[in-house]
Amino acid sequence: MAQHINKKARFHSLTANRLLDGEPVYLTGDNGWSEVLTDAVIADGKDEGAKLMDIAVQAVKDRHIVNPYLFDVDVDGDTPKPISVREQIRATGPTVRLDLGKQAS
């Protein structure tokens, strides 16, 4: 799997694709899954990130999601903001079709 976190980065959130339709989803603070990135829980440091991944591994077993991974975020108050262009695009939709993806709804 591609690496989506920088060793030096402190804050991470966890994303995956929903099994049924591939929709990008984010792990929330109550161990649920949201389609909205700003709902994502923020892990401060490696250990908290590993705990999120444990929850995700179980969700894979439960057939809710596939392909979970941690990605770097900046923290704006309580809200995570993705650092990479890739995660910004995943969180919104194709930049060339603003009528499609999450940004359309």
């Binding site: 591939g22 929709e23 894979v60 392909n67 695009i89």
Partner: peptide, 28 residues
């Protein structure tokens, strides 16, 4: 079988790829 949990993602992935089905950024 995948949706029923009889196949794991690791088992299913090569099968879906043999049928042209990828998982991309926003969807399959």
């Amino acid at each position: 079988r995948r949706l029923a949990g009889e196949l794991t993602e690791d088992e299913f992935k090569p099968l879906r790829l043999m049928n042209g089905l990828y998982l991309q950024l926003h969807a399959y």
